[in-house]
């Protein structure tokens, strides 16, 4: 930055800070910042403006470095990105206004505006990229967690496994379900697999198609599929949509399905007390 511009910015620092603090106090009520206490809000504002002035004589690489620690803390505390961008925008406005009021000649130069623009833009870029990076991380880790939870196959008895499905089924998940199902059947040497759809909110033609495909694939590798957990509303939609689930057996609850599965493998649960 041009030394004379920097000098006059630093000269007017107190004035700019005063105005900016006033300005930022106003949009506190519009954002999601109401439940933050006054003292925390003030100290954060003060720290923010100090950080801004710290970066005044740094090149862009140093700005990133300097600002990333600060932004990390803001992200952890859950400050909205809105606060940052609006804060910086109004800071730029106030700085330009304050300096142009001094009446010095250079204030009318295009160069002067460009210097201030690039200074503030650099800051915004650094902060926004930190924020979006942290969001992307969150989305990624949640996606992984969802994937891990999406299709577990649980062996409950010899030759009997259960796959409880919870949540919406899309094509990607259906593929995963199919793979886990087939590999699990072979690994556990299962004869019967119960697919429990109690936790699936909607069964449309697509979901039904995926389930039918999975059941047929299971039959090809040499086991049987029983579809359990069919709620009344699911039975209604399935029939209304004209989906044919007649090829494999269906039961209303996992309990009944388990009884059927035991019967298919020539076993039953016996009450010891009655003997």
């Amino acid at each position: 930055m041009h030394p004379s511009i920097k000098e006059s910015i630093l000269e007017k620092k107190d004035e700019i800070v005063e105005q900016w603090l006033e300005e930022i106090e106003q949009f506190r009520y519009e954002d999601y910042l109401q439940n933050i206490s006054d003292s925390v809000y003030r100290s954060t504002n003060r720290e923010f403006v100090d950080k801004i002035f710290e970066t005044v004589d740094l090149c862009s690489d140093d700005v990133y470095e300097r600002i990333s620690q600060y932004s990390e803390r803001l992200i952890q505390l859950g400050w909205p990105l809105n606060y940052i961008t609006r804060g910086l925008q109004s800071f730029r406005q106030i700085t330009v206004e304050t300096l142009s009021n001094t009446g010095d000649n250079y204030c009318y130069d295009i160069e002067f505006y460009q210097e201030i623009e690039s200074w503030i833009d650099n800051l915004i870029n650094a902060l926004v990229s930190d924020y979006s990076g942290s969001w992307e991380n969150t989305v990624f880790s949640q996606k992984m967690a969802l994937k891990e939870l999406s299709a577990p196959l649980i062996p409950v008895f010899d030759e009997i496994c259960v796959m409880p499905l919870i949540g919406t089924i899309d094509s990607e998940r259906a593929k995963l379900i199919m793979e886990n199902l087939l590999e699990g059947v072979i690994e556990n040497r299962a004869q019967v697999v119960l697919i429990d759809i109690t936790g699936v909110p909607v069964v449309d033609t697509m979901v039904a198609h995926h389930i039918i495909q999975a059941a047929e694939a299971v039959r090809l590798v040499g086991a049987e599929c029983i579809l359990v957990g069919i709620r009344p509303e699911i039975a209604q939609t399935v029939v209304n949509l004209g989906i044919d689930l007649g090829k494999f057996s269906t039961k209303s609850t996992l309990k009944k399905g388990m009884a059927t599965a035991l019967k298919m493998t020539d076993r039953e649960i016996v009450d010891l007390a009655s003997k």
């Binding site: 199919m178 793979e179 087939l182 590999e183 072979i186 694939a217 299971v218 090809l220 590798v221 040499g222």
Partner: peptide
């Protein structure tokens, strides 16, 4: 017997 998962998926 012994149809592999990948084979089953392609067939389906």
């Amino acid at each position: 017997t012994g149809i592999q998962p990948s084979v089953a998926i392609t067939l389906i």
